[in-house]
């Protein structure tokens, strides 16, 4: 009994620990500014409204209400909201592109590295892992230098390339371990039955791999969606090329409207919540963090 209640207490504690920071920002995003700054703070949203979310994209369901102050008019006048919408559209194009290219490159390579005895395999794997060992800041400076000198700053292509330079090695690494862990007997049987290598892959490997590949693709989507440093440095200067994260930071650096900022951040983290729910079942199977998984299989 003691054991059960201790466990229960820890379960509650962990849930609170995990969810409170998210709750706090949702709470703020649902309140008018006068309620946000109320002392003592409201732990449950007072007069909850989704108005901030509409305002973010340029429409105000409470037209003429108290919300439209001088700052608000200023935003509209300079088309700031369109910038945010634009950023959202940009990242919603860039992230799937990164995801698709990553998967196209990483699935065959991960399959080959995970299932075949290839010469110099460990050297290849070392090169892949190398991408994780370098601090991001050390990578950003040379890349900025590179894209500036070839005049690609502000162009989404620069961001796509920078994202791919991270996602392809990491996803290949994960898939190497993943393909290596899938059962081999059926594939062998298919080969013995006379299937070609691609047929064997299609009928004896892919059906087992699909859920895991889906989860990996989600991961490849999440990276560009979440990435900040490259997004900010490489596209930050361009009005048309900016992505959501970089626009959001420059926008709210100038205009501190906290409930609006909160709702912008909520929009940023919603995909993360979806991804978490999807990936939860695969996270141990994909061995996202375990470098030994690949070397040992």
């Amino acid at each position: 009994m003691v054991r059960k209640s201790v466990l229960g207490a820890f379960v509650v504690l962990i849930a609170i620990w995990s969810l409170t920071p998210i709750y706090t920002i949702v709470n703020i995003s649902l309140m008018r500014m006068d309620n946000v700054v109320h002392i003592p703070g409201y732990i449950v949203p007072k007069d909850p409204t989704f108005n901030q979310y509409f305002r973010l994209f340029g429409s105000d369901i409470k037209t003429g209400g108290v919300e439209v102050g001088a700052a608000e008019q200023q935003f509209r006048k300079f088309g700031q909201y369109q910038g945010l919408t634009r950023g959202l559209i940009n990242i919603l194009i860039i992230a799937p592109v990164v995801m698709i290219i990553t998967m196209l490159a990483a699935v065959p390579a991960g399959y080959a590295l995970g299932r075949f005895r290839i010469k110099y395999r460990n050297a290849y794997l070392g090169i892949l892992l190398g991408s994780r060992a370098i601090p991001p800041v050390s990578v950003v400076i040379p890349y900025y230098f590179l894209f500036k000198s070839v005049n690609l700053l502000g162009n989404p292509i620069s961001l796509i390339i920078a994202d791919l330079s991270i996602t392809i090695p990491i996803i290949t690494w994960i898939l190497t371990g993943f393909f290596g862990s899938l059962p081999r007997d059926l594939e062998k049987a298919a080969r013995v039955d006379g299937a070609t290598m691609s047929q064997a892959f299609r009928y004896a490997v892919l059906p087992f791999a699909l859920p895991g590949l889906g989860a990996t693709a989600v991961l490849a989507f999440l990276y560009p969606w979440n990435e900040f440093l490259n997004a900010w440095l490489l596209t930050g200067g361009s009005v048309s090329g900016q992505v959501y994260n970089s626009f959001m930071t420059s926008f709210f650096a100038m205009q501190a409207v906290d409930n609006l900022f909160a709702s912008a951040v909520v929009i940023q983290i919603i995909p993360a919540l979806v991804v978490a729910a999807i990936l939860q079942r695969y996270i141990t199977r994909l061995k996202i963090v375990d470098p030994s998984a690949v070397v040992m299989t």
Partner: peptide, 22 residues
């Protein structure tokens, strides 16, 4: 498990903002 993994999926950038707001 789902609840636990949520903070991992949030970007480092947004985590800082959450911290600031909290």
């Amino acid at each position: 498990k789902v609840i636990v993994i949520v903070p991992w999926a949030i970007s480092e950038y947004a985590v800082g903002i959450l911290g600031g707001f909290f």
